[in-house]
Design a protein around this nucleic acid. Structure first.
Length: 291
DNA sequence: CCGAAAACCTGAACGC
DNA sequence: TGCGTTCAGGTTTTCG
């Protein structure tokens, strides 16, 4: 599924191929893919025609094309969404949902999405963010990302570490794959209480998160299911997974047996030998009545 | 505040 | 061969 590294690879492709170009025609092949555009598919198409794309931007797993005038074409790839650059004559893909043609008559931008959990919409931009992105936390690749305050936020949660990492309002861009990979790198158990971390733990977690995401990015993303970049190329990160999808295999660090459990309804892979399960700290909270 | 569960969707994998 | 069932997962929403 597309998480931060995959979405960033797509963003780079779009930045190279659609910035500066003017939208000529929009073809919505499947209305569900624009369901988040509440004014309907006709309005969606009308708001794009004639607009020039200024830049391709991203926060967490959200991607948007800046249209100027405080508006943007917002995309979320969901679990199977792709943004592809294709020659105008290319055969329609089976799950082609939206097609954008440009005034220069060159390559098209196609949104392809088998499971239709993703979608496109034209959104108002406020303070640099499309409105649906306003509640999403900064991601670890953001120049203003502040690891210390994020870790502080995680530690305040009375929940398990993996669940906290998946909460896009705490830190964005981490999905099921990179949560498992980051926790393995940090040698932390996915069910450890978030409030139980001490300095060495959160330093390891911070490094684990950044390390896992950077590995994903430098490998062009992970292609399990149908992730492809804007040219249709697969990434190779799936071959580099330390634990994700590797139940029963040996832990690359200690040789232990990798386990699969379910956390928040999601498959979770970890090594029970070297990923420490911390215990809840006594009185992690406050301060009864300061009076 | 926490968290489980449902809803949305389709193709692959599996059982018989 | 083929039909039916199960599963996967990001986000939002609902409910306890």
């Amino acid at each position: 599924m597309p998480e931060l590294p995959e979405v960033e690879v797509v963003r780079l492709g779009l930045a190279a191929h659609v910035t500066g170009r003017t939208v000529a025609a929009v073809d919505v092949c499947h209305p569900r893919s624009v369901r988040r555009h509440l004014a309907g598919e006709l309005d969606f198409a009308a708001r794009l025609a004639g607009r020039q794309i200024r830049a391709a931007q991203r926060r967490g797993k959200y991607l948007w094309l800046d249209l100027g005038d405080e508006q943007a074409l917002l995309a979320h790839l969901g679990m199977s969404g792709q943004m592809r650059i294709q020659p105008p004559g290319a055969i329609d893909e089976t799950h082609l949902r939206v097609r954008l043609q440009f005034a220069d008559g060159g390559s098209e931008l196609r949104f392809i999405d088998q499971r239709t959990f993703g979608g496109l919409s034209v959104e108002e931009v406020v303070d640099g963010l499309p409105i649906p992105v306003a509640h999403i936390a900064r991601d670890p690749m953001d120049p203003c990302f502040d690891p210390d305050s994020v870790i502080a936020g995680i530690r305040q949660r009375r929940t398990g570490l993996k669940r906290a990492l998946l909460d896009q309002t705490l830190v964005s861009g981490i999905g099921n794959i990179y949560a498992d990979e980051a926790l393995h790198r940090a040698e932390l158990h996915p069910l450890s209480p978030a409030g139980s971390m001490r300095a060495p733990h959160w330093e390891a977690l911070r490094d684990g998160i950044v390390g896992a995401l950077e590995a994903g990015l430098s490998n062009g993303g992970a292609s399990i299911d149908d992730y492809r970049d804007s040219r249709g190329e697969q990434g190779s990160m799936q071959d580099e997974f330390l634990v994700h999808t590797r139940a029963g295999e040996e832990c690359p660090r200690c040789g232990g047996r990798i386990l699969r459990i379910v956390v928040s309804g999601r498959s979770t892979y970890f090594c029970p030998e070297c990923q420490t399960r911390l215990r809840r700290r006594r009185k992690p909270r406050v301060a009864r009545a300061a009076k």
